[in-house]
Amino acid sequence: RKEMTAACTPRRRIINLTSVLSLQEEINEQGHEVLREMLHNHSFVGCVNPQWALAQHQTKLYLLNTTKLSEELFYQILIYDFANFGVLRLSEPAPLFDLAMLALDSPESGWTEEDGPKEGLAEYIVEFLKKKAEMLADYFSLEIDEEGNLIGLPLLIDNYVPPLEGLPIFILRLATEVNWDEEKECFESLSKECAMFYSIRKQYISEESTLSGQQSEVPGSIPNSWKWTVEHIVYKALRSHILPPKHFTEDGNILQLANLPDLYKVFERC
């Protein structure tokens, strides 16, 4: 597991931080080997919608929660590849102030007048994250320049770009939802926020969305749709870069829909 690298990086740093090793061990302890084997050997059937997909393993048909699986995938990559990410360069710098204002204007932020003026909160978020810029760049390849612009994001899987519609809320939550006081809790909560931002979430995906850094293989055609990215990038990574937690067998994120021999018997009677 320590050699797990989802995106190509030129050289690998050895990380011996106790906090990170502890988080890696927790993933191992909570892992479910049968689910790992199923995901490793599954045959992708198709997307139901951005949140759900169908896959077959041996004779069984499964309904998989793409949102939760991708979130767990990105969390584990962030923990196992800690401080070893490439950088996704933004085509132009994104001012943190503008991103924070967009987030505060969104109902998702939960902002009320009692929280104070949005401009003041946005300025605080910019200054707060600028103070964390060195650590964010060093460990997470999340790059913020001296003017308070976001200029780079971590490359977690080759050819995958997170849904940038979720970027404003991500920046807001970096400042408000991460435990910045304790090292282990900081790395864990920061990785979880980043994983949620990178995950496939239906509120940020339309039929026209593209999450891939590449064009489709047909010359002159439109960019790959999110469905292509889910199948050929995300579920491909799920084959080798995730140890599913045991609770996925109990919380409805992986559901067995049918045993195909039983279905064949039904059709034979028709």
Rank of each mutant, 00 (worst) to 15 (best):
K2Y: 10
K2L: 11
K2G: 11
M4R: 05
M4W: 12
A6Y: 04
A6T: 05
A7L: 08
P10M: 07
R12T: 15
R13H: 08
N16F: 06
N16G: 08
N16H: 09
L17F: 12
T18S: 10
S19V: 03
S19Q: 03
L21F: 10
L21P: 00
L21W: 09
L23S: 04
Q24S: 05
Q24Y: 05
E25F: 07
E26D: 11
I27H: 01
N28L: 15
N28H: 11
E29T: 14
E29R: 08
E29S: 07
E29K: 10
Q30W: 06
Q30C: 11
E33N: 10
E33C: 12
V34K: 07
V34L: 10
E37M: 07
H40D: 07
N41F: 07
H42V: 15
H42C: 13
S43V: 14
S43C: 11
S43H: 15
F44G: 00
F44A: 00
F44P: 02
F44S: 02
V45M: 06
G46C: 06
C47A: 14
V48K: 02
P50D: 02
P50Y: 07
A53E: 00
A53T: 04
A53G: 06
L54S: 03
Q56D: 09
Q56S: 13
Q56E: 12
Q58E: 14
T59S: 15
T59P: 03
T59R: 15
L61D: 03
L61C: 05
Y62Q: 01
L63D: 01
L63A: 05
L63C: 05
L69H: 01
E71I: 03
E72T: 08
Q76P: 01
I79H: 01
I79C: 08
Y80N: 09
A83Q: 05
N84C: 05
L88Q: 15
L88M: 15
L90R: 02
E92V: 10
E92D: 11
L96P: 00
L96T: 05
F97W: 11
D98H: 11
L99W: 02
L99S: 07
L99Y: 12
L102F: 06
L102V: 07
A103S: 09
D105Y: 07
S106P: 04
P107H: 14
E108M: 12
G110M: 14
W111G: 04
T112K: 15
E113Y: 13
E113L: 12
E114K: 09
G116L: 07
K118A: 06
L121K: 15
Y124V: 14
Y124C: 13
Y124S: 15
V126H: 07
V126T: 14
V126L: 09
F128I: 14
K130I: 09
K130F: 13
K130P: 04
K131Y: 10
K131V: 14
K132M: 04
K132H: 08
K132E: 05
E134W: 05
D138W: 04
Y139T: 04
Y139N: 05
S141K: 07
L142W: 02
D145R: 01
D145P: 01
N149D: 10
N149S: 09
L150G: 00
I151P: 01
I151F: 13
L153G: 00
L155Y: 07
L155K: 11
L156A: 00
I157Y: 03
I157D: 01
D158L: 10
D158A: 15
P163I: 09
E165D: 14
L167C: 03
L167E: 00
P168C: 04
P168V: 02
L172N: 04
R173L: 02
R173E: 01
R173T: 02
L174Y: 02
L174Q: 00
A175D: 00
T176N: 14
D181C: 09
E183V: 01
K184H: 07
K184C: 07
E185P: 10
C186W: 03
F187T: 03
F187C: 03
E188V: 11
S189G: 15
S191E: 01
K192W: 09
E193Y: 04
E193C: 07
M196S: 09
M196V: 12
M196I: 12
F197I: 00
Y198G: 02
R201P: 03
R201N: 06
Q203V: 08
Q203C: 12
Y204T: 04
S206G: 12
S206E: 13
L211Q: 14
S212F: 14
G213W: 12
Q214F: 08
Q214H: 08
Q214K: 08
Q214G: 10
Q215D: 15
S216R: 14
P219T: 14
P219W: 11
P219D: 12
G220Y: 13
I222D: 14
P223Q: 13
P223W: 14
N224S: 14
W226T: 01
W228F: 13
W228T: 07
V230L: 05
E231I: 02
V234M: 05
A237Q: 07
L238V: 06
S240E: 14
S240N: 11
H241N: 09
I242P: 01
I242C: 15
L243F: 10
P244Y: 02
H247E: 12
H247N: 13
F248Q: 01
E250W: 06
G252W: 03
N253Y: 15
L255S: 07
L255R: 14
Q256S: 10
N259Q: 13
L260C: 08
P261V: 08
P261H: 07
P261R: 13
D262P: 09
Y264R: 14
V266D: 15
F267Y: 14
F267I: 15
F267V: 15
C270W: 09
C270S: 15
